[in-house]
């Protein structure tokens, strides 16, 4: 048995047997791991409120030989999403991060850049200020996983968009120019293309000073969500909330 102590982010929990929880955890050292938190619903001593999704924790867990699930021993919360007020949009935002990370990351594949990205967006995701971190996270996770197409030129002809809108389609990769767009494509505006370039260049802290509304970067978010959904072949439940809220 190998004991581990690592910084981690709780992604999701599922009830298991009478009082156990199955926990999906994004650890800094080992990547995504799944394990069982025994009696987590009965006793709050070992986990407290640290099993809430997107809680940044110091996690102690044990890997057992020839067993896929680890044994979760003890979590100590470093930063909890419950420390700040929560509304429906913030809950959807936290759920979106958890759902995307759960769907796109393979098990036992540590990726420090994704871990740092998640911590950075979590810090910025506050009531009334969620649209920017959601967009930033969507863009960067798509890039870090390797699914982000070129955002400055047409995939078909390679021509630079040069101040004109790009087009995307739910069933095809990449962005197209007006000449090569597929029927029923959606437009990605000039402002959003520029925003994507800026987000790939600047830190999230620099972006956080700018005023954002639900309309800001809406087409960019939709493009990125579609890209993630197409590659994982799964609908993102939490992204539906963004659409329902007009974002």
């Amino acid at each position: 048995m190998t004991l581990h102590q690592s910084e981690a982010i709780v992604l999701r929990t599922w009830p298991l047997r009478e009082s156990d929880l199955l926990v999906s955890l994004l650890t800094r050292d080992l990547g995504k791991v799944r394990g069982v938190a025994k009696a987590a619903l009965k006793s709050r001593k070992r986990f407290g409120g640290a099993l809430e999704p997107m809680t940044y924790v110091d996690a102690a867990y044990a890997e057992r030989p020839r067993q896929e699930l680890v044994r979760m021993d003890h979590f100590e919360a470093i930063a909890s999403p419950l420390a700040l007020p929560i509304d429906y949009l913030r809950a959807a935002t936290l759920g979106y991060y958890a759902e995307v990370l759960e769907n796109v990351l393979p098990d036992h594949d540590p990726q420090d850049a994704i871990f740092r990205l998640t911590l950075a967006v979590l810090e910025q995701s506050q009531v009334g200020r969620c649209w920017m971190p959601v967009t930033y996270f969507s863009l960067w996770i798509t890039r870090l996983i390797g699914w982000l197409p070129e955002t400055d030129r047409c995939t078909e002809c390679g021509q630079n968009f040069a101040g004109e809108a790009a087009y995307f389609h739910g069933l095809t990769d990449g962005l197209s120019c007006a000449r090569h767009k597929k029927p029923n494509s959606s437009a990605l505006g000039v402002d959003s293309l520029a925003l994507a370039q800026r987000m790939l260049r600047d830190s999230i802290c620099a972006m956080s000073e700018e005023p954002w509304t639900r309309q800001s970067g809406r087409d960019l978010r939709r493009f990125l969500v579609r890209t993630l959904e197409r590659h994982t072949e799964r609908r993102l439940n939490s992204a539906e909330v963004f659409s329902r809220m007009g974002g």
């Binding site: 809430e52 999704p53 929560i86 429906y88």
Partner: peptide, 15 residues
Amino acid sequence: NPTVEGEATAGYLLQ
């Protein structure tokens, strides 16, 4: 419940 989902629901009802 004082969980993320419980708090979000309470916040939604308050609005």
